[in-house]
Structure formats: C-alpha cells, structure tokens
Simulated scan of single mutants.
Amino acid sequence: MELPQGRFLPGPGPRPWVSDLPVEDPAAVWAWHHARRGETGLWPLLHGWEVFGGAPPGPARTGLDDDLAQAWARHRAWFAEIKDDDAALAGTDLEPPFDDWPGLAPPSRRSADPDEAACAAVRDLPSGAGPVHLVLAPAERSADVLGTAGWTAPTDTGRLDALLRSWEERFGTRVLAAVGARLWLSVAWPPAAIGPARRIALEHFLTGTDLMRRSTPFEEYAASLVGGRLWEFRWD
C-alpha cells in the first residue's frame, strides 16, 4: 500500500507523521499499517483534525485505583450537595448506583487476539466520524498513541492515559480513532456479565464522557458494554 502524501509534525524527538488529506478506506489503511507496526515502530491512528501538535506521553500515573476512588468520592459529595437544590436529580437514572468506590473492574477472560479484534472493530467505526487523516505515531504500545500524537480533550488526560494502559491490560483494548473530542477503542475481551460491566461503566463515567452524564442512563450504558467490541467516548 502506497503511503499518501504527508508530513512530520514539528517538535523534539521522534515525531508523528500525518497525511495531508483524509484517507480513502480508513479501515483498510489502519489495518495495513497496524500489521507493520513491529517493523516500523509506528502505531496508526485515524484522526479528524488536519493540524495538531505532537508531544510525548508523560509517565504512567501511579495509584490509578486510589485516584479513581478519590474522584468518585468528590463526585458523590458534589452530587449530594446539588441534588438538595434540584429535586429532579434525586432519582436520576444517569447517576451510577454506587455509594462507595467498588474498585477497578476485574480483567475479562482473554478470549480473542487484541490486534485481530482491532482490525475487525475499525470497520465498525460510525460513518458520522467524518473524513479522517492517517497518523503514524512512534509509540511502544497502543495506549500511548494519543499522547504521542498530541491529542487532547476536555478531560483529565493523565487519568485517561493511565486508564488506557490499564484497559489495554485488562480488556485488550486498542486505540483506533480520535475525531475532535471523540475517541474510539476496540475491545478484545469485553465483560460477559452486567456486574463487571457496571464497574467498567463507572471507570468510563470518571473520564467525564458525556455519553452517560447527559443522555444515556447508566444501566443502559453498562448493558451496552456486555459483549461490546467498540467503546466510544465523547467530551463535549
């Protein structure tokens, strides 16, 4: 497959490369370059912005479980305060049904090859994602591609980076595409039951994704994760 015209992004150290124009057949392009990442050291990413800045990923945040426990405690305290001022919030179905932090969701059974699952899932990206450019990012693992490519969103990126690395180990995820403040991951080992799916959904909730906080009831969102091979995040 011929590499489309593109350029290296400015910056120190190994730099990501980005195509000048959106690519045709993004799923095939992504899969072709993904298959050659061992030779090139470059991980593919489908990206919706033509111009963006590159920056190396920071060190992995330690104490992820403690960080999420503190974030959940802060959210619960905030919610308890505001629901006293808005009776409609008291029974909202958008709120996760946990009083205390339940701990990280347990790893799923390793039932598929993560890279094969990624090549299948990339074909299921929604057409609404729009035209996408190809990014080739020098990274040691899929979870580090976003940081290397300089992608940002209105979320705690340090927490998200740590979660991406943890999800990669627990659920065989791979980063597929980032379009604006939307992100898609493939999932090789999704939860098989609603119990662990609820705990995964709580981890998603603590990234601030608007898919739950504004529109989708928590239980409906958690149920969609059971057997689901594609995770979407949106920070509006």
Rank of each mutant, 00 (worst) to 15 (best):
L3D: 07
Q5H: 15
R7H: 13
F8W: 12
L9W: 03
P12M: 01
P14Y: 06
W17L: 10
L21P: 08
L21V: 11
V23W: 02
V23D: 03
V29K: 00
W30C: 01
W30T: 01
A31I: 09
H34W: 14
H34G: 05
G38S: 15
T40L: 12
W43S: 04
W49G: 12
E50T: 13
F52A: 14
F52S: 15
G53D: 15
P56F: 11
P56K: 09
P56R: 15
P57N: 06
R61G: 13
T62P: 12
G63M: 14
D65E: 15
D66W: 13
A69L: 13
A71N: 07
K83F: 02
D84A: 12
D86W: 15
L89I: 08
G91S: 15
T92A: 13
T92Y: 10
D93K: 09
P97S: 08
F98A: 03
D99I: 13
W101E: 05
G103N: 10
S108F: 06
S108N: 12
R109P: 12
D113I: 08
P114I: 09
E116Y: 09
E116R: 11
A117G: 08
A121I: 04
A121V: 06
V122E: 01
P126Q: 11
S127F: 10
G130Y: 14
H133I: 03
H133W: 07
L134I: 05
L136I: 08
P138Y: 05
A139L: 02
R141Y: 07
A143P: 04
D144R: 10
V145M: 03
G150W: 01
W151R: 06
A153H: 02
A153E: 02
D156I: 01
G158K: 07
G158M: 05
R159C: 01
R159D: 02
R159N: 04
L160H: 05
D161I: 04
L163V: 08
L164V: 07
W167I: 05
V175D: 00
V175Y: 00
L176R: 00
A178K: 00
V179L: 03
V179H: 00
V179M: 02
G180Q: 01
R182K: 14
S186F: 00
S186Y: 00
W189H: 13
I194C: 00
H204V: 08
T207C: 07
L211N: 03
L211M: 06
S215M: 10
T216H: 03
E219I: 01
E219N: 05
A223Q: 12
L225P: 02
L225H: 02
F233G: 01
R234Q: 13
W235K: 01
